[in-house]
Amino acid sequence: MDTAFIILSLITVAGAVWAVTLRNLIHAVLSLVLFFFGIAGFFFYLNADFVGWVQILVYVGAVAILAIFAVMLTHNLTAEDEPGFFSLRWLTGMAIAATVGAVLWFAIRSNAAMSQTAPAGVASNVADIGRKMMTDWVVPFEVVSLLLTAAMIGAIVIAMEQISHRK
């Protein structure tokens, strides 16, 4: 482990823990922004520059703002009546999370390929990604663009006020 990995791990884990535990929803969303930046840092660290920039644009730019808008539109700045520490709900959540975490831990630990170090000279440039997307991945690309259109129209239709026919 090197220093960059440790610092980025601390940022992402702290952001994630704050995002799921803080009572104030605005603080939770801001912690989530910290988490998104940490994940983007990991993408840069792994030489996936394009994914890192997409992460910053989509998550920090769009999803975080959308979440803040949702918090404000629902007039719900602090989540009252949340279960406290060591309530039954928290213990159940801890048990579920610990079980899933243990399964993942043993799966990772029992795989010999996991101990390899990073090969040198691995990079992803935007031209290669674009070429791949227009050749091998063209069908998923079209499907996902259809999905985005449907989601955009769907979000507008769902959130639209019901038009009243008074006249």
Partner: peptide, 18 residues
């Protein structure tokens, strides 16, 4: 670890946004 933290939040929190 991050996946497990997210799972814990999705199971425990009451607020739909969180």
């Amino acid at each position: 670890l991050l996946f497990v933290i997210g799972l814990f939040g999705a199971v425990t929190r009451r607020n739909a946004i969180v």
